[in-house]
C-alpha cells in the first residue's frame, strides 16, 4: 500500500556528509530526509517507512547563505557538574563560540514522495496496515502533523499534502542524470554503531527510483 506525499518549500538543505562544516546540499532529497519528513507527519513504533520513489518536480537550483553559527554544543559533563552542585559555566558565550559558515542550499523545491510502510515486531495485535494507512491519509488530508516537517534543517519548513493523483510532472522528462553516490539512510540496527549507507543515485526522467537500488556501506 503506497502513499504519495507532495512536499514543497522555499529552501532545502540535504547536507552532504563529506561537506558539512560549510554545508553543501545534495541535488535532490535523500531517502532518509524523505523518511524523516513522513515520520514528522505520522510514525508509530509498529511501523517502518520505506521510500520507493522521489519525483523532482522543480528544477534543481542552488543559493548560498552564510550565517553566524555557534560552534559548541551543550556540554553534558558541565551540566552534570552543575546538577551535582559544582561550579561550571552553564551557557555558551556567543562572541567566543561563533563561526561563520556558508551553506549551499536548494531553492524552491517541490517533490512527490512515494512511500510504503511495513509492520515491525513492535506492532500490537490491535495494529493493522489498514489502520495505519487510514491514519496517515487522514493526517495528510487535514494537515495534521507531529511536528512541522522540514527539508533537511528545521529552518527550511516543508508544506505537505497528499498528492492529488495522476503521474507527477517532473522537471526533467526524457533526461537521465547521474547524481553520484548519495546517502541512503543511517543503519540504526546496532545502536552502538550507527552506520551510514549509500546508493548510486540515478535521476531518470526526474524520478529517483529507490525500490531496487543497491545499498552499500
Amino acid at each position: 500500500m503506497a502513499i504519495r506525499v507532495e512536499a514543497w518549500g522555499d529552501y532545502a538543505l540535504f547536507t552532504r556528509p563529506e561537506m558539512k562544516v560549510e554545508r553543501v546540499s545534495y541535488d535532490v532529497m535523500t531517502p532518509s530526509a524523505a523518511r524523516g519528513l513522513i515520520e514528522a507527519v505520522y510514525w508509530h513504533p509498529g511501523l517502518r517507512w520505506h521510500i520507493d520513489r522521489i519525483y523532482v518536480l522543480n528544477p534543481i537550483r542552488f543559493a548560498g547563505i552564510r550565517r553566524n553559527e555557534v560552534k559548541s554544543v551543550v556540554s553534558v559533563s558541565n551540566v552534570r557538574t552543575v546538577m551535582s552542585g559544582g561550579q561550571k559555566p552553564l551557557y555558551i558565550d556567543r562572541s567566543a563560540d561563533i563561526q561563520q559558515r556558508a551553506a549551499m542550499v536548494l531553492k524552491d523545491v517541490r517533490y512527490v514522495i512515494e512511500a510504503h510502510f511495513t509492520l515491525t515486531d513492535r506492532a500490537s495485535d490491535a495494529d493493522s496496515p489498514g489502520k495505519f494507512q487510514d491514519i496517515v491519509k487522514r493526517r495528510l488530508e487535514s494537515g495534521k502533523c507531529y511536528h512541522t516537517p522540514y527539508f533537511g534543517c528545521r529552518e527550511f519548513p516543508a508544506s505537505f499534502r497528499r498528492f492529488a493523483g495522476g503521474e507527477p510532472l517532473t522537471a526533467y522528462p526524457g533526461e537521465t542524470k547521474d547524481l553520484g553516490y548519495m546517502l541512503y539512510d543511517m543503519d540504526y540496527s546496532d545502536p552502538e554503531n550507527i552506520t551510514p549507507t549509500f546508493f548510486r543515485a540515478q535521476l531518470v526522467n526526474g524520478v529517483l527510483d529507490l525500490r531496487d537500488c543497491e545499498v552499500v556501506r
Partner: peptide
Amino acid sequence: IYIKSGVPLN
C-alpha cells in the same frame, strides 16, 4: 538563556 553574549554566571 543558554546562548548569550558572555556574562559569566555561576
